[in-house]
Deep mutational scan, measured.
Amino acid sequence: MQIFVKGLTGKTTTLEVEPSDTIENVKAKIQDKTGLPPDQQRLIFAGKQLEDGRTLSDYNIQKESTLHIVWR
């Protein structure tokens, strides 16, 4: 499925993911596209910070959802 990651600059990155992907895995995909290391990424969805060990489905993140990224 496709999801979007929007940064503070307003730039949006598209990712191809599975609902079973962990947040850690998603951060690795973001690094592949942007070069930003996972330890500098904070992902937010529906006002919650996403924890590395959880999956996208744990947070009810579905296709075409938009996550927000904040740099540490």
Rank of each mutant, 00 (worst) to 15 (best):
G10K: 06
G35A: 04
P38F: 12
Q2W: 11
F45Y: 12
K11C: 11
I69L: 15
K6L: 10
E51Y: 07
K27P: 00
T55W: 03
T9V: 09
D39N: 12
T13I: 15
Q40K: 13
Q49K: 09
T66P: 02
K6H: 14
R72M: 14
M1D: 02
E64V: 03
D21L: 05
E16R: 10
L36Q: 06
S57G: 11
T22H: 05
R54C: 07
G35Y: 03
L50R: 00
V26R: 00
Q40F: 11
Q41R: 03
G10S: 07
Q41T: 15
P38R: 14
V26L: 13
L67M: 05
I23K: 00
P38Q: 11
H68P: 01
R72A: 14
G10F: 09
S65C: 05
L15V: 08
G7N: 09
G7C: 11
E24F: 13
K6Y: 08
T9W: 15
E18C: 09
T14Y: 07
A46G: 11
L56I: 09
M1R: 02
P19C: 05
K6V: 15
E18H: 14
L50W: 01
L8P: 14
V17Q: 01
Q41V: 15
T55M: 09
H68R: 09
M1A: 02
T55I: 06
V70P: 02
H68G: 04
I69C: 05
E51R: 07
E18M: 14
G35F: 04
E18F: 14
T55L: 08
V26E: 00
A46W: 08
G35R: 05
K63M: 10
K11G: 13
P19T: 07
T14Q: 08
S20V: 05
T12W: 10
V70W: 11
I61T: 01
D39V: 09
A28G: 09
Q49V: 15
Q31N: 07
V17N: 00
E18Y: 15
L67C: 01
L8R: 10
T55N: 05
T9G: 15
W71V: 13
R72D: 14
K33P: 03
R72T: 15
K11H: 14
E24I: 10
Y59D: 01
I69G: 03
S65D: 13
P19K: 06
V17I: 04
Q41P: 03
K27V: 02
I61R: 00
Q41S: 07
E64P: 03
W71A: 12
N25F: 12
I30R: 01
P38M: 15
I30E: 00
K48L: 12
N60R: 06
S57E: 11
Q31V: 04
R54Q: 08
R54A: 08
K63I: 06
S65A: 10
D58E: 10
T13G: 04
V5Y: 03
V17M: 03
E18N: 13
E64A: 09
I30P: 00
E64R: 09
K27F: 03
V5M: 04
K11A: 10
Q40M: 12
V5C: 03
I23S: 02
R54N: 09
S20N: 14
Y59C: 02
I69N: 06
L50E: 00
Q31F: 15
K27Q: 02
T12N: 06
K33C: 05
T55P: 04
L56R: 01
T22D: 03
T14V: 14
P38E: 06
D39T: 11
A28E: 10
L50Q: 00
R54G: 05
W71E: 11
L43P: 01
Q40W: 12
K27Y: 03
W71T: 11
E18G: 07
E18S: 14
R54H: 12
E16D: 12
G47K: 05
E51S: 07
A46P: 01
Q2N: 10
Q2C: 07
V5D: 01
T13M: 15
K48I: 14
K63T: 12
N25A: 14
K33A: 14
I61A: 01
K29T: 03
S57H: 08
S65T: 07
S65Y: 08
I3N: 01
L36K: 05
N25Q: 13
K6G: 04
A46K: 15
K63C: 06
Q41C: 10
D32C: 08
I61K: 00
G7K: 04
Y59R: 00
R54S: 07
I61N: 00
T9E: 11
N60A: 07
E16K: 08
P37E: 07
F45R: 02
E64L: 12
V70D: 08
K29Y: 07
D32H: 15
Q41G: 05
A46D: 12
Q62P: 08
Q31T: 10
T55C: 05
Q31M: 11
I30T: 02
P37L: 09
D58N: 04
V5N: 01
T9K: 12
A46R: 12
T66V: 14
E16F: 13
L50D: 00
G35D: 04
I69F: 08
N60D: 09
K33S: 09
P38N: 07
L67P: 00
G53N: 11
T12H: 07
S20F: 11
I44S: 09
G10D: 08
K29D: 02
G47S: 05
V5W: 02
T66G: 02
P19D: 06
I23V: 09
D21Q: 04
S57V: 06
K63N: 15
D52P: 07
D21G: 02
F45P: 00
Q2Y: 13
T22G: 03
F4M: 05
G47V: 02
D52H: 06
E51M: 10
Q40E: 10
I30Y: 12
N25V: 14
K6F: 08
G35W: 03
Q49M: 13
Q62D: 08
D21K: 01
T9D: 15
V5L: 11
L36A: 06
Q40N: 10
G53Y: 09
F45T: 02
I44V: 11
R72I: 15
G10E: 07
I61S: 00
Q41I: 15
L56W: 02
I61G: 00
I44Y: 15
D58G: 03
A46L: 12
T14P: 08
K48N: 10
